[in-house]
């Protein structure tokens, strides 16, 4: 369950940064991304998938969240 910092890129996309792993990836898709919740399964551009219980109301970025590896 790594701590993940999520921040906006210059082009508006979201970056998924795990400090301990020096991993910085762009988020490809988010399962729930509506006006009143954000979260669920998150897929990154490198193909890995992570999970977080949807947060309501949606967090303002940048912020640090705890993610789990999504079950395959």
């Amino acid at each position: 369950m790594p701590n993940v910092m999520i921040r906006r890129k210059d082009d508006g996309g979201l970056l998924f940064y795990v400090a301990k792993k020096d991993m910085e990836e762009t988020i490809a898709s988010v399962e729930t991304d509506t006006a009143d919740a954000w979260g669920g399964e998150v897929e990154l551009t490198d193909g890995s998938r992570w999970y977080i219980d949807p947060i309501s109301p949606p967090p303002s970025f940048p912020t640090t969240l705890r993610f789990k590896r999504a079950e395959v």
């Binding site: 910092m5 921040r7 940064y17 400090a19 940048p62 912020t63 640090t64």
Partner: peptide
């Protein structure tokens, strides 16, 4: 980069 990321998150 660590402290810059922290300042981005805490102070925007």
């Amino acid at each position: 980069n660590y402290i810059s990321r922290h300042m981005e998150e805490k102070y925007g």
